[in-house]
Computed example of a mutant assay.
Amino acid sequence: MRNVSEVIEQYLKQTLQQSPEGVIEIQRNDLADQFNCVPSQINYVISTRFTLEKGYIVESKRGGGGYIRIQKIELNSHGEVLDHIFQTISTHMDQSASEGLLYQLREGGFITKREESLMRAATNREVLTLKLPLRDEIRAKLLKAMLISLLSCR
């Protein structure tokens, strides 16, 4: 049986897919009521599963009429993918962010499951046994070089 976070994530992704604009606006409290959970559970799902690295832009407006807007980043061309890689990978990248980016690229069909697995293995903190921030700097350089090389071959 799936946990509440997975159910909320699936609901939001399905709602996004059904949206003609690729954007949804939700009320955190309304969604919490719908799934019979606390509003912080909604925050957790959005902050961990709808990140830039995973291909989403999240905006929030607080207050009485506040909302959370989630937009899926569509990568339709080779140039858009490369731009997204350069925008997402700066001088440092932690493991969670790198895994999110790889997930997004695999889901979009830009890399294979095997390529994702190899890059995850090469950039894993268990392999890059360096102290921070050097580890995140090396991970960013490795990932950027591998992705650019791989995508340039296609």
Rank of each mutant, 00 (worst) to 15 (best):
T123N: 07
R125L: 14
Q95D: 08
D94F: 09
F110H: 06
L102H: 07
P133D: 12
M119I: 03
E99V: 02
M119W: 04
K113W: 06
E116K: 14
R114I: 12
Q104L: 08
G109V: 01
M93N: 08
L102M: 05
T91D: 08
A97L: 01
L105T: 00
R125D: 15
V127D: 10
L132A: 13
G100K: 01
I89H: 09
L118N: 12
T123G: 05
A97N: 10
A97D: 12
S98K: 00
G100S: 12
S96E: 15
T112Q: 08
K113F: 02
P133R: 07
L105H: 06
E107T: 01
N124D: 13
N124Q: 08
G109L: 04
T112E: 08
Y103N: 04
L102C: 04
S117G: 07
K131F: 12
A122Y: 11
H92Q: 10
L101A: 11
Q95A: 11
R120F: 03
R125K: 14
R106A: 09
Y103A: 10
L101D: 04
L101I: 07
R125A: 11
R106L: 02
E116P: 00
A121G: 13
K113R: 12
T91L: 11
G100M: 06
T123K: 03
H92F: 13
I111G: 08
T112V: 07
L105G: 02
Q104P: 03
E116S: 12
F110R: 06
A97Y: 02
L105Q: 01
E115W: 03
K131R: 12
R114E: 13
T123D: 05
R114V: 14
